[in-house]
Design a protein around this nucleic acid. Structure first.
Lengths: 109, 109
DNA sequence: ACCGGTACCTAGTTTTACTATGTAGTGGTA
DNA sequence: TACCACTACATAGTAAAACTAGGTACCGGT
């Protein structure tokens, strides 16, 4: 992956995953493939699992284990109240930052 | 500074500074105050200087020392050809990422 | 002589995504 | 039976970048 993209994902990937979980629970492998479909073709699987461990420990998601027809049991993640709050803060931070950056782009500048 | 913002700045702050240098050379102290005027009120001075050392070592800027009326000599940074190329890549990476994220925000999602 | 403002610099810490593996379960096929 | 592809989760060690928390130095005014 481009080094620029790697660095830029720091701080945004978590928000992206929380956004993906809005309105629809999902498990790790599924999230990885979802991300790839959305254009993030080079996100490493290990990155996603590590991130999921992190947001679980922060208490942003509820976890449920469900058997799979095709492999080991899935860990299904659901966004909870605290997760929604965090996602909301993410959108605020994002709005501020992207606003500033778009301003700079306009200025030509 | 908010932890979210700290993480989100990784990978974008460099682009922001390169963008600030477009069309106008500047020195470290000046860049710090510029950033603060633009709303990045909590960017640490040390962060800016470390970043400037980095982009100088990567060869993205040319440096010139100029005496100051009010203190130690200033190190004035000018964006060079390679820096412009890097800034261009930054805009590409940024466009892709912000496009994906805005998509997610729309989806509601 | 001191202090505030200007101006630059650095060592050590934290966070996060990466690379590179490893483990397991299931179904198909040679 | 043995093997392979796909599904699914997990982790140890590394690299990059912004932070904290200082420090140095030059100038003018009181």
């Amino acid at each position: 992956m481009g080094k620029q993209m790697t660095e830029m994902l720091k701080g945004t990937l978590e928000g992206i995953v929380l956004a993906l979980l809005t309105g629809k629970a999902a498990y790790g492998y599924e999230i990885t493939t979802l991300l790839r479909e959305q254009g993030f073709t080079e996100i490493a699987e290990g990155t996603v699992y590590a991130l999921l461990v992190r947001i679980e420990q922060k208490g942003l998601v509820d976890v449920e284990k469900r058997p799979s027809e095709k492999g080991p049991p899935r860990k299904v993640y659901t966004l909870n109240a605290q997760g929604k709050k965090e996602l909301n803060e993410f959108w605020n931070t994002w709005s501020f930052l992207s606003g500033r950056i778009e301003e700079l782009r306009k200025e030509g500048n």
